[in-house]
Design a protein around this nucleic acid. Structure first.
Length: 249
DNA sequence: AACGCCGCCAACCGCCTGCAA
DNA sequence: CTTGCAGGCGGTTGGCGGCGT
């Protein structure tokens, strides 16, 4: 037996929203908020709509902070980079793009970026048959973490690195603003070889996830996705130098 | 002008998760 | 601990408009 529907489909209006319905929903939320209950909202607002439909309409279209218009090159880069690393977690990806919704990002990916990326991939495959990409990472002795844990993380991260965008990382001397002894400064070299990919979009999808800013950015201690950090030294030891060529560039 | 194809995008569907009772 | 509900999410669909023939 299936799950009961959230509303009676025979009694609710479906399909495109009219300007009048938009106005009613907008006014109601402006005056009363969502009330923490989307299911009850349409009845209170006088709308013959399913609560879920109201929520979707508000989040994807009526919200005041929605960003309209085409996606920028940088947004494309962030989406592509995140998709490769974390997959189709559209809400996570959208949260990194101010004013974009998961539906927006998903549609944009399905209609434009997917093709763009596969096109680049094909071009790359043709190019790399004559020039082998540089894909290597050099580890030295890791510190602090138990071997088992180091092995575990290396197993996780190595494939992710291998499928990440082309970047050159070079360990640089610690700076005075480093927040812990385990912090490793990583300089991401911006170059034409980045192919337009934003150097500050280098996500890894787990608790140690990180992003790095361009030009000698510091990877601090922390763990929040994309704004958090990843202690390379803990897992990889002294990473002297590693270069990657993305499989699709 | 008529038709068919295709891309885009708003909206729906159904599953999963978190939480309160 | 179980159950039911609401919200959140990703996959999919259907309608519309643009374009080519």
């Amino acid at each position: 037996m299936g799950r009961s529907p959230c509303c009676d489909k025979a009694k609710v209006k479906r399909g495109p929203w009219s300007p009048e319905e938009d106005a009613i929903l907008k006014n109601h939320i402006h005056n009363h908020g969502t009330g923490g209950n989307w299911i009850a909202l349409p009845h209170k607002a006088g709308l013959k709509r399913c609560g879920k439909s109201c929520r979707l309409r508000w989040l994807n279209y009526l919200r005041p902070d929605i960003k309209l218009g085409g996606f920028t090159e940088e947004e494309d880069n962030i989406i592509s980079s995140l998709y490769v690393n974390i997959g189709s977690r559209w809400s996570v990806i959208a949260s990194k793009l101010h004013g974009r919704t998961d539906n927006d990002v998903k549609n944009h990916w399905n209609t434009k970026l997917k093709k763009k990326l596969s096109l680049s991939h094909n071009t790359s495959n043709a190019a790399t048959t004559s020039a082998a990409p540089i894909n290597h990472i050099q580890f030295s002795s890791p510190t602090n973490l138990p071997k088992q844990e180091v092995d575990h993380y290396q197993t996780i991260y190595k494939p992710i690195f291998d499928h990440s965008m082309m970047m050159d990382y070079q360990q640089t001397p610690m700076t005075s603003d480093s927040t812990s002894n385990s912090t490793v400064n990583v300089n991401i070299l911006s170059s034409p070889e980045n192919h337009g990919f934003s150097p500050n979009a280098f996500p890894i999808s787990n608790g140690y996830a990180s992003w790095c800013d361009n030009g000698g950015g510091v990877i601090d201690s922390g763990s929040d996705f994309l704004t958090g950090e990843f202690d390379f030294r803990q897992v990889f030891g002294e990473v002297a130098n590693f270069n990657y060529a993305s499989p699709w560039l």
